[in-house]
Design a protein around this nucleic acid. Structure first.
Length: 684
DNA sequence: GAGATTGACTCAGAAAAGTGTTA
DNA sequence: TTAACACTTTTCTGAGTCAATCT
């Protein structure tokens, strides 16, 4: 089998993102969109401008520069810096030895870093549960503390001691800053449409200068021309450096790469670039070294640019070439299993994994990186041969600390070799102790020029998608949504092969609860309607009265049960009073919708009497109905945090409220979601 | 029935984390 | 063999959009 033939010629955006099936699906969605509405038109128009410039048929041109040079002329306007920090001037509070809360005013440098952390309070769920993550907290605090103690004289003046009074993160209360953050969000949210448009317009205008460059005389879109703003490093998985301060990048950190004779972009007033160079052997326009991992960051062209298109094109051509040779390559690694050389055996089994399971190559990782693995770096503990013969269970963390768990049937010889490789080794030993990625890639180059481990992934992802389309061709007669379903199904196969996963969103659990509740409620309603049906059959003459009576009885029983378990005294009284003068409600199917909306299968709360203080807004009303730390709207959270202010523990870590709130009642009713680890779901 | 509100969904861009080559 | 460098791959995040629902 070969990589899809249609890939010849213009590489579509979808294809150009390698084995990235996500991009592939996005492309389809775009293509299958209905005739664009007004706003879409504007969007299309907006995008058209650069597209015209990039619609050069570079794949038909032989514009390859000699000696691996990427360009001959290059002009650009440099990079866009994030705005300077604007201090809010709010203090934090610190629980002193005597238990009293001391207000700590901060200098802008201290406040900026403090605020980075303080505003993360709501991010207490996977995958962004940084705020409560001990590693994150420790790293943040170490870096913050360094700033707090960076100026002993300043501290002496302010606190009468060279050392800053803040010594422990657990004793710091960030409530004021958190409230300010919520207010800012509300203010932003409350902006009118016009104001929002104006802000966007101004932003676009400021960016215009940096969006394009002139590459060999052609206008090309630049990708990440914005310099990454300072923040706390959000390492994934168990990254040991998560929470560390990512410093503000200054012009003095940046190297500009520009064509000979081109106008060098001016550094911001009062600053200068680290270096200005002309290097056409690389494609980046600017670079700097990020302080947390010490890695280089590059400003490069956008994915839609000519140079990236060419690169993608080359990649898929490579995969296609592999498709033509795959049989002989597979034969070679199978022969390798029989080699007397353990090194060759290991290499051949690793190749089998890379090909058969689409595993990544797996380079060695440093101590300051999250422990993740790939084919070459697998440890003995990552495979389990205890299962039935020829079956292997893989269980390890791959790129981005995404778990790879797979029980597969492998070829007998592979199973035997694996048993041999693990024999006498500790669980933490390298499975392939005689193999390093460089050697593997060198060998692959011998088999086919341009072949490396990752080409297998591109090839197999393409092949899988191709096979899906080939085995079950899409019918012309099906509708557009059906075509989308068809495509997504094929795409899912690729996602599974490549172990592409996405953590569930914040609202997933809540949405599921709502759906489950709705289902429960509908089932309950259905069963009651069945009863009514029976009743009406039984009492043919006075069925209406009987049905009313039965319905009222059911409603009352359910209401009573709910009040008994969760209701307050006021609610019980209100219900009693209401019932005293109430007529039986009729069984109406619309009741279902109303109850559903309140996202509960439980009986409705007693209706508010006319004299009851009515919530003015929907938000207020909702707040009365439910009050969840995780899903409450911001305004409610603000109130929640205000109430938490009285907590003299000093710590700002969200805690369960002492008073039993409706949320807790509801949580008691539903299953708790906080303690349950968030499951990952397949991307599609 | 109109306007407001809400929440789900989509998408693009940001940025982290890989791979592979070279000195 | 290793580290640096350059580039790709992949996930996360926030803004915008739209439809359902509420007032």
């Amino acid at each position: 089998m070969t990589v899809k033939e249609t890939k010849k010629g213009k590489t579509s955006k979808a294809e150009s993102s390698s084995d990235d099936d996500v991009t592939l699906s996005r492309k389809t969605k775009k293509e299958t969109k209905k005739p664009a509405p007004k706003k879409e038109d504007a969007k299309v128009k907006k995008e058209k401008e650069p597209e015209e410039d990039t619609m050069i048929k570079w794949w038909e041109e032989g514009t390859q520069h000699p000696g691996g040079q990427h360009w001959l002329t290059l002009e650009h306007n440099g990079v866009l810096f994030p705005p300077e920090y604007v201090p809010h001037g709010l203090p934090c509070h610190y629980k002193m030895e005597d238990g009293k809360l001391k207000e700590i005013k901060m200098e802008p440098d201290e406040e900026e870093v403090c605020t980075m952390f303080a505003v993360m309070r709501e991010q207490t769920r996977p995958p962004s549960d940084y705020y409560i993550n001990p590693i994150f907290r420790k790293n943040f605090f170490m870096d913050w503390l360094q700033i707090l103690n960076s100026n002993p004289e300043r501290n002496m003046k302010r606190f009468g001691s060279k050392q800053h009074p803040i010594r422990s993160l657990e004793k710091v209360n960030f409530d004021r800053i958190w409230e300010w953050h919520l207010e800012q969000k509300e203010i932003k949210k409350a902006l009118t449409k016009e104001q929002k448009l104006q802000i966007k317009k101004e932003k676009d205008e400021a960016e215009q200068l940096y969006k394009y460059c002139i590459w060999d005389g052609k206008k090309q879109p630049v990708g990440n021309f914005r310099i990454e703003p300072p923040g706390l490093f959000r390492g994934r998985g168990k990254h040991p450096l998560m929470g560390k301060l990512k410093r503000r990048v200054k012009p003095e950190d940046i190297t500009i790469n520009i064509g000979p004779g081109a106008k060098v972009p001016e550094a911001p007033a009062g600053h200068k670039w680290k270096e200005v160079r002309t290097d056409n052997m690389v494609t980046w326009l600017a670079n700097w070294t990020e302080n947390v991992n010490g890695q280089g960051k590059y400003v490069m062209l956008a994915a839609s640019s000519m140079v990236k298109g060419k690169s993608d094109h080359k990649k898929f051509e490579n995969a296609r070439k592999l498709g033509q040779m795959i049989d002989s390559i597979r034969e070679k690694y199978r022969e390798g299993w029989k080699s007397p050389d353990v090194g060759i055996q290991q290499r051949s089994v690793a190749m089998y994994f890379i090909d058969f399971l689409a595993l990544r190559c797996g380079h060695e990782k440093g101590e300051d990186e999250a422990e993740t693995f790939g084919a070459c770096s697998l440890k003995c503990e990552h495979i389990n041969l205890e299962e039935e013969r020829d079956h292997v269970v893989f269980d390890f963390l791959g790129k981005d600390s995404i778990r790879y768990y797979n029980k597969v049937k492998v070829e007998s010889k592979v199973w035997e070799l694996l048993r041999k490789f693990v024999k006498g080794k500790t669980p933490n030993s390298d499975l392939f102790d005689r193999l390093i990625p460089t050697h593997l890639n060198s060998y692959l180059k011998e088999l086919m020029p341009g072949l490396s481990a990752k080409v297998f992934r591109t090839y197999n992802a393409s092949w899988t998608l191709d096979k899906e389309f080939f085995d079950d061709p899409v019918s012309d007669s099906i509708s557009l949504p059906e075509k989308l379903v068809y495509f997504n199904a094929a795409n899912t196969k690729v996602a599974i092969l490549c172990n592409h996963q996405k953590s569930v969103g914040k609202g997933f659990q809540k949405a599921m609860t709502v759906l489950e509740d709705r289902l429960k409620m509908l089932k309950n309603l259905y069963s009651r309607l069945e009863d009514v049906k029976e009743l009406s059959k039984k009492h043919k003459n006075n069925w209406q009265a009987k049905v009313d009576e039965q319905w009222e009885k059911d409603e009352h029983e359910q209401q009573q049960a709910w009040l008994e378990q969760y209701g307050t005294e006021e609610e019980k009284t209100a219900y009693k009073e209401k019932r005293a003068g109430k007529k039986p409600s009729k069984p109406k199917t619309t009741t279902a919708t109303t109850t559903t909306k309140s996202s509960s299968s439980k009986p409705k709360e007693p209706e508010k009497k006319k004299s009851d203080p009515k919530p003015k807004t929907k938000r207020e009303k909702k707040q009365m109905e439910s009050d969840s730390d995780s899903d409450i709207p911001l305004a409610k959270k603000k109130k929640a945090s205000k109430s938490a202010k009285g907590d003299d523990s000093g710590s700002d870590v969200p805690k369960k409220k002492s008073k039993k709130t409706k949320l807790e009642k509801r949580k008691a009713f539903e299953s708790s979601e906080e303690d349950e680890p968030m499951k990952k779901k397949s991307k599609k």
